[in-house]
Structure formats: C-alpha cells, structure tokens
Nucleic acid binder design. Sequence first.
DNA 1: CGCCTTATATTCAGGTAGAGTATAATCGGA
DNA 2: TCCGATTATACTCTACCTGAATATAAGGCG
Lengths: 320, 320
Amino acid sequence: MDDRAKRIRRNSPGGKADAAKVDLTAVVVAVSNNEPCVLTIGQTDTLPSGPLALEHRSLQSGLRTWVEEQTGHPLGYIEQLYTFADRDRAGAELEQRVISISYLALTRKEHATAPSKSSWQSWYDYFPWEDHRAGTPPMVSNLLRPRLIEWADGAYDDATRLERRRRAAIAFGFDDRPWNEDLTLKRYELLYEAALVEEAMRGSTLPPPVRGKSMVSDHRRILGTGISRLRSKIKYRPVVFELMPPAFTLLQLQRTVEALAGRLIHKPNFRRLIEQHELVEETGETSTETGGWPAKLYRFRHAVLEEGEVAGAKLPLSRA
Amino acid sequence: MDDRAKRIRRNSPGGKADAAKVDLTAVVVAVSNNEPCVLTIGQTDTLPSGPLALEHRSLQSGLRTWVEEQTGHPLGYIEQLYTFADRDRAGAELEQRVISISYLALTRKEHATAPSKSSWQSWYDYFPWEDHRAGTPPMVSNLLRPRLIEWADGAYDDATRLERRRRAAIAFGFDDRPWNEDLTLKRYELLYEAALVEEAMRGSTLPPPVRGKSMVSDHRRILGTGISRLRSKIKYRPVVFELMPPAFTLLQLQRTVEALAGRLIHKPNFRRLIEQHELVEETGETSTETGGWPAKLYRFRHAVLEEGEVAGAKLPLSRA
DNA sequence: CGCCTTATATTCAGGTAGAGTATAATCGGA
DNA sequence: TCCGATTATACTCTACCTGAATATAAGGCG
C-alpha cells in the first residue's frame, strides 16, 4: 500500500514538497471617537503581516516584530485567531503552499511611537452592514436582503433553495429573527458564497453589488474573523479595557463596547453589571468634558484578572 | 534601516530561511462506557499526525487523510484548535522550523472501518487530576498541592511567590476556590512550569513526581488544549451529540457530558435544560438495559442546528 | 431662571439556575 | 409474592440575573 510510501516521505523533513511559507498576519484594533478601527499599511487595504523567520523565537514574537516594524506600534494584548491555508491565496500557482497564521491585537492609537506608513481605518468601512447602532442599516433590508433571496432562488433544487434562505435569515436576522452581532464571519462567508463581495468576483468585470471596501488577498476574511472573535469575547472576558485610556467614565466605556458590538446597550443595566463584578474602581476625579453632570472617572481593577475566572462578566447587549 | 532588508527577503518566497515544515495533528475523541477516550497510534503515546502535503486540498482534508490512513477512522465533526510553533519541538536542532496545526475531532468508536494499529486511551490516563466525578482526586490535595506550594515558595522574591500561589489556587481550586473544569490547559502548563510533569524533565534522571502518562513531543499539551476546548464548548453548543449513538437515554447523555466535564451534573436540572431547548425528540422506543424503570430513547433533533444560534444551551454543571 | 444634557439611583416583572423532594415503573432476590 | 434497590419522571422553592422603565440630582448655557 502507499501507506509505506507516505511514511517514508514523512521521515524526510527536508523534502521540498512538504515545505511551506508561513505568514503572520495581525488584526490590530483600537477604538477612538466611538469608532472601532483596524491598523492597515501602505496605500492599499492591507493588514500588517510578514513571513515567519528562523530568528523569531515564537509565533507571537515574530508577529510583534513585524507589526512594530511596519507600523511603529508595539503590541500589548494579543491572541491567536485562526490558521488559514485552503484559501485561494496568492501562492496557488507557486510550488509552495502559503499558510497564514492570524492574530488579534488590542491597543490604543496613542501607543504609536513613530510616524509610519500605517493608518487606522474604521472597520465599518469594510463591513458597513455590521453597524447597527443606529438601527438596522438600510443597505441590509434594501440591498442585501433582495440579493441574497435572489441568490437562494438561483439554486438548482428546492432543498438548497430553502437551506440558503434559512442560512441568510439566521445570519442577517431576516423574518423577525434576532440580529446576532457575533456572526460577522458567517455573514461575510455567506456574501462571498453569493458572490456579493468584491473578493469573490476577482477577474470579473462586473462591479461588486455590495458597498464596503475590500482588502488585499483574504485579509477581509481575516478581519471578519477578528471582529467575530472580539464581539464574542467582550461578553465573558474583560478585554475591553485593553482599548481604554487609564481613566475613563462609565459612558465612555459603554460607548466603546457599543462601537465594537455594533449595537446599543441599556445604560442602567450596563452600569449595574460593571459595578456588580467590580471591574472598575473610582480614581477620585471627575470629568466635565461631556457637558451635563460631571462623571466620575474610573480605572480598570487589574486585580480582577487575578481573581480567577471572571465568570459571568457578560455585557448586557440590548436587543432594542 | 534593516526594514528594507527584511522587505526584500519577504519578496523572495522560495527562500529557504522562510520555509517551514507543517504538521497536522488530531485530537480524536470518543466516549464509551462513560470514559472519554482519545485515539492514539502505535505503541507509543502519539496522536495521529502527518505533514501537510501539496496534494491536500485544505488543512482539513489533509488532516482527514492522515487520520484515516493511520487509524482507519473516517472523521465527522472537526474544528481547528491551535497552531503551535514556539515549543521546543523536535525540529529545534534542524534548520527548518516545525509548525503544528492541531484539530479537535468528535466521533464514535464504532465508526472504525478496518483493523489498524491505533488504539483508544482514556484521557484521564494522561490527566489523572482532571477527573472529579468521584470528588476531588486524592492526588490533588495530597500530591499536587504540596508540590505546587513548594514550587511557589522556591521563587526568588515575595511577589513571584505570591503570584505563583495565586495561580495555583485559581487553577486547582485550592483555598476554597471553586474547581473550574475548563482550565485543563492552564493546569497542565502550570505543572509544566513547576517541572512536575515528565515532559518538563526530559534529559533528567529524576522520575517525574506526578503520576499520569506523558506523550510524544508536545502531544500531551495538544490533548490538554483539546480537552479545554471541548469542556468549554459543550456548555454553549450541542456538540455532545457527535459522540452519541443514534438513539440514547437521557441518563446516557448525561453520563457522557459528565465524562467529558469530569464532574457530576444535577439530574433534574439536566433534563429540564435538554427539554427546554428541545435538543432531542423521542424515538418512541424504550430501553430496559439499565435495570429499573425503562427509559425512553431519544434522538438528537438536527433541526436545532438550523434554528440559528443555540443560545443558552448551557449545561448545568453541578458544583456539588 | 428654565431647559437641556448627562449621571446616578431605584424599582419591577420574568426568566433561569441551583438544589431539594416526591412518585411511578421495573427487576432481582428473599 | 412481596420488598427493596434502581432508575425514570415530575414538581417545588428560592435566589439571582436580566431586560426594561422610571425617578432624581448636578452641571452648562442662553
């Protein structure tokens, strides 16, 4: 059997067929002016990235090196997102396979140390259908919905037709289903499958039917993965504070969460939750910046990270 | 600046320095006789794995190919776990870096199609401190606790000492903290750091102080990652059913969850939850196999997967 | 001074989770 | 044949969490 043949190749680690090029890609997120932003480099819409090299001690340190070199931002909090390889990445025509290991990083714009060729882009420029803070965006009902239904009805058999309609309804909250902000990646994949985003139409001359900037290679997909992960995570881990200045008001904190989640939060419930879990402590100062009653300033209680599992640090995301 | 130098290397994808060997590793899980098992190959404690090759269409299909070839088990449900590279993996002395992309697979033992050199091992053989179904195992209080305190007190400064004690207490539930079954990976990493597991002592002649089989390379760490992921996931997604036969009683379902979680569940609450979320439907038959009142047989309602997010499919893990 | 804006406090109803208790059906053995 | 062990199933009770609404206080500004 060819079992043995493969075993032999397995034992020759220098074999060219098995070698791959490994890229590290970062989704670096910051929030300012209630707008969630992602760090891009150059003129094109490209995430910071670079090949894993032998001198990198680890995947994380390799990533930090590349991002700092390309953007001037030293990274704090990072976590691995996903490893891609089956995409129609640039290396398809090469002999070598390209693997992309992606990371999510949370930081603040002020952390930049030097001028650089990088810039911050609102992530809603790439995903305009994801911002529901002012209600469901018109493009969802007016553009995406009819296009997705059209796509579903274009299936060859009834079963597929129904299944496509169901998937679209779940992902986008059609037919009185609730909008679930965590499904960013699923929505993007659906639009890709329906050929409604630019990436799915490369080589075609037709304009993509959906507004929203695309990115180089599969970077928009990676960004979507990062948004999905972050939107899920803020509900059970206090990661928002990585994006906050040292001192902040409770409303600023709420606005930041709302920016990330793309939906509004019920204020009293939000405050109750934050206080209940003792996530913050007063600095003793107040801010009058916003007009109205001066708000107390708070700082994150780093001790909560040391108090074991922050069980139930869920955020009350309003469905109103 | 050397910025330019790196950019140039970046653009020569065939460069040897950037090429890496990519391994696919699978944590294949099944439960039988109320014991969670992992699939291993050969005589040694090794997870199924093999190098990613050009003929694999995707990471997933490469993994499926390797597992089926090495064990005879075709895989159903799989999900990506984590990508490792910074370990002191076998390739440290080689010129080439070794990357390991790991996957979690859920299946049933009966799915084997052919005799093979693989075998099933209880995962508690590798992690004996993780099974709390019969209460806290004696080894936790009698062996791990004193050894971890010893390790903590061996630190050079007071701050580190306190921090180590705190981490150990959180991970293992010392000092009246609750036991959190999801922290399997953290516990293993802590024991590794404290040099209480065999992998941390390779090259040493001293016997490892903690019982529990070790595995080849960093496979026990990968298994720990899989256990952690699965224990978290069963609380909010109905993945347990991938491990169940087509028809089962509610108690069998409960015992399976308990086997995975390593702790007991309050029976009435478990049933209430399953019924509340309509995860199952009656087959109409009953089973008298267990003695006592014949239990109704149920099957998984696959429709729930199509009903959008299975919000709140949490499992009531008793803290008693 | 009155109005607007924001902060802060309180309340209320519904749901869920944890935990305990009660009753019914079947089997094995005395 | 009856009793107890074993299992299935049903019901209850309480504490807490969540969503949502309302009320009051403090400052800025025309």
